[in-house]
Design a protein around this nucleic acid. Structure first.
Lengths: 240, 240
DNA sequence: TCATACAGAATTGTATACAGCATCTTATGC
DNA sequence: GCATAAGATGCTGTATACAATTCTGTATGA
């Protein structure tokens, strides 16, 4: 038996799965423009699969909120509006605060310590990294690990979905923040928002942790309208 | 031009949509047993459509959490476990409390009054109705109307999804409550939980409203484990 | 100039076919 | 009697075909 056969736990991922991953990534990053109609034949050709598995993937993505569907007219990229993004930020607050509330009683000291260790490890790169994509990935990863402490798989699932749907705007927002050099001001003296949340959780201070999380996300939510405006301008100008 | 053409806004719903509605209903009500494998050919025959639109509908339902999917083995009904149901109740708390928090500043007095009117109208039937299905529908409807006051379509969407996924267990739970005659005790003197939440919202008392909502749902969450046990026994005995 | 109607092209919606797995049955050896 | 292997069966995964619908571009009339 070959080593590759032993290591291959991927269940020989199907055509639908491959197509799904690709299209989801494309939709998340607005490689389809907002409200753009998706041509099934062209896309299936580009992805090297027939329309049948493509349409199955597209249907999944509609249910996940990445695409929309109109009878007889086919699939479209989701629209991009400040209202929609604000809605998602609020949903994120709901999910993450609830998760935190549950984590206070359900997460062991060891599990919390593991997230602290992750924060210790990644924090240096936070302020030095030139890649906004990398920074955002670390940020998302932290929030997911934190949410997982709640032991509630549904909350984690919802958070993953929401994160992926606001990723593009968050990326723009992050660039905006870096451009304004707000990071530099925050560096050093003040504890990072993540650290504050985690300290409160470790101290089993539910109210404090939730309050810190709420205001942490609230800050970004308030920037959403401007971030969407910038996102639009980025989407409709030649790539840099 | 015929009147029917003018009135027909239904866009001649497609085969996928019809199949989707039917299968979603079946899955919500556990007409498929937990973890049961779904035979596509048999089901497509039963629903009068070919496998192609059926599979598109099934893929949507996987993304919505009603079904699961395993590569090469096909589609299965979701499993039914106390842990999963508790997770969903907690997600519901997160969503509904967040919606309430937003409604405090966003709902007009008139909009709140409309929900009060709905409560006034339906409340008499609450304690008299023999149909648990009707009672649950009224309850769900109230919660949706309340959530809509937040003007956050994403929260409403999430709540709809969660409600549909816990409906079967809630129905069992409701029968359990009625059997114990807890309704009779609550009738009269005490304000209904819905009334308390709505009063707090009308008074713009966000903290009070959220606290009332949280404990309202919490009470049901605590019964989830027993309700799931009963649900299981109902599913695996001859229908009454 | 604008609106409308029509024909052709393009695209979607669904059925069907078939290859490839997974599962079940039966047979065989221990 | 039990475990295992081989063959048969049934189901899933995907491609393709074609019907039905929508879209596009052009021509016609007010």
């Amino acid at each position: 038996m070959m080593i590759s056969e032993v290591l291959d736990m991927s269940k020989a991922s199907s055509s639908v799965d491959r197509v799904y991953d690709r299209v989801r990534h494309m939709a998340a990053n607005f490689e389809f423009k907002p409200d753009e109609r998706i041509n099934e034949s062209a896309l299936s050709l580009k992805l090297g699969a027939s329309r049948t598995p493509l349409r199955e993937a597209l249907n999944r993505l509609v249910a996940e909120g990445f695409l929309t569907f109109q009878n007889g007219r086919g699939f479209f990229c989701r629209s991009l509006s400040p209202e929609k993004i604000v809605d998602l930020y609020e949903a994120r607050q709901a999910i993450e605060c609830e998760a935190l509330r549950r984590s206070v009683t359900r997460a062991s000291d060891e599990e919390i310590a593991a997230v602290v260790a992750y924060l210790d490890e990644t924090e240096p790169r936070y302020n030095t990294s030139k890649s906004t994509v990398e920074v955002l990935e670390m940020d998302e990863d932290f929030h997911i690990r934190l949410a997982e402490l709640s032991k509630n798989t549904e909350l984690v699932r919802l958070l993953r979905n929401i994160n992926d749907r606001i990723r593009y705007v968050r990326l723009v927002d992050l660039k905006m923040i870096l451009a304004k050099k707000q990071i530099a001001k925050n560096k050093g003296a003040k504890l990072s928002a993540h650290r504050v949340i985690l300290n409160a959780l470790a101290a089993r201070d539910g109210e404090g942790a939730v309050a810190a999380m709420r205001s942490h996300i609230e800050r970004r939510r308030e920037e959403a309208t401007e971030a969407v405006r910038i996102a639009y301008s980025q989407l409709y100008v030649p790539a840099d």
